[in-house]
Each structure stands twice: as C-alpha cells, then as structure tokens.
C-alpha cells in the first residue's frame, strides 16, 4: 500500500504541474506599462515554487516507496546529517529564495505604488457603489465639482451626488458608466466608494485596488493597447457583487476625444 501511495502521489504531483508547464492556464495579455514586472515576478516565483513543490512531493513519494511496509524487525536508520542538515538546507535554499523573491518583488511593487503620477496624467474619478461603477471626467473647466452624498439620486442619473442647481462647476462634469481612456497616456484614477468596500480589478492592466469608504485612494497606470477590457469588483460588497462590473475602453486619442464629446452632450 505504501508503494501505491508513492505512485499515486507522483501522478498527482506530475498532473498538478502539467497544466503549468504546458501553459494551459496563463494570465490574460498584459496591456500596462508596469505589468511586465509583475508577470516576471510571477513566473520567477512559479519556477521556484514549482521546484519546491515537485521536489518535496517526489521525495515524499520516494521515501514512502522505499521505507514503507518493510520486513518486521528491520533496523531503522537515521539520515546522515540529521536535523542540522535539514535546518541548514531550509536556511540556505529557502532563506535565499525568500530573500531573493522579497527583494526582487519590491521592484514590481514600487513601480505601481512608489511612483507619483505625472503632472499631465489624465484624471478620472471612479465611484464604486452597490453594484456598479460610474466614472466622472472633469469636463471643460477641468475641475471635479464637490460631492454631496445627500444629492445622490440614481433614478435621475445623479450617481455621484452632484448639485448642478447650486454648483456651476458640476454642470459640465461628465458622468459615464464606462471608463474610456486614451491609449499610451497615463491615467490617474481617483477612487471613491459610495457605500461599502469595493475593489477595482482589471486583469489586463495588472491593477487591483480596493475602494475604501472614507479613504481617498488613487492608482495610476498607462494602457498600451486599444480594446475593451473588463473591470470587475473583487471585494465582497453584497448580493450583486457577482454582477458588479464595467468596461475599460482603451481608445486612440481621436476616438477618445470624440467619445468624450458625445458623452458631454448626453449630460
């Protein structure tokens, strides 16, 4: 039975590694300027984790194969080197691996979080609320009008709580359900939560950031490929969580200008 365990475990280990080795499941294409660092870090980690996984599982299988259900009265042996060898191995191999991953990984993290958006980045506000995203562009005056939560009137299309009656700045703000952005231009996304916690996740952008009620968070990124991509909510926000999504529409600069004009006329 011990040998059977060894065979099954070997098969499981190989079958688990097969889809990774053959790239059966890969991340969606990266359309951001910072994503390559994350992807590299991910594949480095995959290599190290895969090595550790296969190594440990196969060793376990081998030892169980070799040392199980032996003759009665067989004399047990001890591994030369004993626990010291194990501790040394753990510190040397895993320790360096940990340090390497830890240090290298900071580069990818820093590219996203420790750089300031360029001053000419396009500012867009994203609002997450149960269970849809809405986006706001500052309009002709290039100013975001202040928000008044008590003015929110979703039936009337006032998702943000603007007060155009008393607030002239609010009249040219452009509110949309889709996040259209120009390609190859940095976007500074200002994040606002209307009700509970939500998250902004675009797989292709390699961006995930929570919306936290009461906190003014922001992310910045540059998309390098035109196309339509899904924005999904990844923070459990209530019954409609599964259906909370919007589209990121990366357009050429001309198409973006046209789109923005059209949206402005709808307000």
């Amino acid at each position: 039975m011990g040998k059977f365990f060894a065979v099954i475990l070997t098969l499981i280990a190989l079958a688990s590694a097969y889809p990774i080795l053959t790239h059966m499941y890969v991340q969606p294409v990266d359309i951001s300027t910072h994503g390559h660092a994350i992807d590299e870090q991910l594949s480095d980690t995959m290599a190290e984790a895969g090595f550790a996984f296969l190594g440990a599982q196969l060793l376990l299988a081998f030892f169980v194969w070799k040392y199980s259900s032996r003759k009665n009265g067989v004399k047990v042996k001890h591994l030369p080197g004993g626990a010291k060898l194990m501790v040394a191995t753990a510190f040397i191999f895993v320790g360096t691996e940990v340090l390497a991953l830890g240090v290298l990984g900071q580069k990818a993290w820093a590219e996203v979080y420790f750089t300031a958006p360029k001053p000419d980045a396009l500012q867009v506000q994203a609002q997450a609320g149960q269970f849809a995203f809405y986006f706001r562009y500052p309009g002709a005056d290039e100013k975001f009008a202040p928000l008044h939560p008590d003015k929110i009137d979703e039936g009337n299309g006032n998702y943000f709580g603007l007060d155009p009656a008393n607030d002239v700045e609010a009249r040219d703000d452009i509110v949309t359900a889709e996040l259209a952005i120009p390609v190859n231009r940095e976007i500074h996304l200002l994040m606002h939560a209307k009700d509970v916690g939500h998250s902004f996740y675009v797989r292709e952008l390699r961006i995930q950031q929570d919306f936290v009620p009461g906190l003014d968070l922001s992310v910045h990124f540059t998309a390098t490929k035109t196309g339509k991509y899904e924005i999904v909510c990844t923070q459990l926000c209530g019954l409609g969580h599964y259906n909370m999504k919007a589209y990121l529409n990366v357009l050429s600069q001309e198409d973006f200008d046209k789109w923005l004009k059209e949206k402005a006329s709808e307000q």
Binding site: G129, A132, G155
Partner: peptide, 12 residues
Amino acid sequence: IPVKCNIHPWMH
C-alpha cells in the same frame, strides 16, 4: 414607495 434594484442601480 420608491422601488429600486440594487443590482442595476439605474432601475427606479
């Protein structure tokens, strides 16, 4: 009574 759909916030 106002009626809304939380899943589709525009529905009022």
